[in-house]
Simulated assay, not measured.
Amino acid sequence: MMKRATTHHSKTKANDLTILSTVTLAYDDRHRRRIKMTADNGEDFLLDLEQATYLADGDLLELENGQAFMVKAALEEVMDVHCSNIDETARIAWHIGNRHTPLEVLRGGIMRLPYDHVLQHMIEGLGGHCERKKAPFAPESGAYKSGSGEHGHAHY
Rank of each mutant, 00 (worst) to 15 (best):
L119S: 07
G128W: 06
L113S: 08
P136F: 06
P136Y: 05
L113F: 15
D116N: 15
A138D: 00
L126F: 00
S141H: 03
A138K: 05
S141C: 01
A138S: 09
A135R: 06
P136S: 07
E131S: 05
E124P: 15
C130T: 06
Q120S: 12
H121W: 09
R112Y: 13
E140V: 03
G125Y: 02
H117N: 13
K134S: 02
E131W: 05
A135N: 03
A135L: 02
V118C: 07
H117K: 14
L113C: 15
G127V: 03
G127P: 13
E140P: 01
L119M: 15
S141A: 02
E140K: 05
Q120R: 15
I123N: 09
P136M: 05
L126A: 02
Y115R: 13
K134W: 01
H121V: 01
F137V: 00
A135S: 11
D116I: 02
K133C: 13
E131C: 01
K133F: 11
R112F: 14
A138W: 00
M122F: 09
R112N: 08
K133M: 14
E124N: 11
E131Y: 07
E140C: 03
C130N: 05
H117L: 04
K133T: 12
A135Y: 02
E124I: 04
Y115Q: 11
S141V: 05
R132E: 06
C130Q: 04
I123Y: 10
E140H: 13
A138L: 04
P136A: 06
H121D: 10
Y115I: 06
G125M: 02
L126G: 03
E131K: 07
L126Y: 01
Q120T: 10
R112C: 07
C130F: 04
M122Q: 14
P114L: 12
P139V: 01
P136Q: 05
Q120L: 07
E140R: 06
P114E: 10
M122K: 14
I123M: 08
E124S: 10
E124C: 08
A135C: 00
F137Y: 01
Q120K: 15
P136D: 01
S141N: 00
A138V: 04
M122L: 15
V118H: 13
E124M: 11
G125L: 02
G128Q: 11
H129C: 09
S141T: 07
A135W: 03
E131R: 09
E124D: 12
A138N: 06
P136K: 08
Y115D: 04
L126E: 04
R112A: 11
G127A: 10
H117Y: 12
R112K: 14
H121F: 06
L119P: 08
I123K: 08
E131N: 14
E140Y: 12
G125I: 00
M122E: 15
K133P: 06
P139L: 00
P114F: 11
A138Y: 02
R132P: 07
A135E: 00
P139R: 01
G128S: 08
R132I: 09
S141R: 01
F137T: 03
E131G: 03
D116F: 03
Y115L: 14
C130M: 04
I123P: 10
I123R: 07
P114G: 07
L119C: 06
